[in-house]
Amino acid sequence: MRQEIRISGFGGQGIILMGYITGKAATIYDSKNATFTQSYGPEARGGSCSAQVIISTEKISYPVLIAPDVLITMSQAAYNTFYSGLKPGGILIYDSVLVKPAKNDSSQQFFSIPSKSIAGELGKEIIANIVMLGYLVKVAGVVSPNAMQEAIVSSVPAALCELNIEAFKRGLSYSSPN
């Protein structure tokens, strides 16, 4: 089965790294196939940016997204740009502090997490992306928790490994108050 994931936010949030880690978790640690692509615009830090991951147990012939099953937005601008592309019945995951969704298509499931605030509690707001990866695994599956953790460990600097694992676990165990 083919699963399409779009991860979006602004440059500097580690959006591309999230896509890379998710694809790596699926291929190397879950032994599935994954294709990871990223938007290559002139945008740099601060501009909108998006990573796309396709995961499948079969060969992936079409390497770009047709309609995402899962959309992660970590900025309002990214939500405004990409929400309309989310599949009916799809899953939206957003940072509850940074994004205010305008409407809720009843066929879709919405999940939110204050990933930036949680990362702040851990001492580094920059690892909000890893908190978000934990929450992605919790609410959408996509890859196994072990695979995601292994992929994180093998992709971040050794000195920050413990902190990243902590961030991942916070996301993985987060329960929305409502």
Binding site: G23, A34, Q38
Partner: peptide, 9 residues
Amino acid sequence: EVVGHMTEK
């Protein structure tokens, strides 16, 4: 560009 920039196993 697509083949060069895409990441896979």
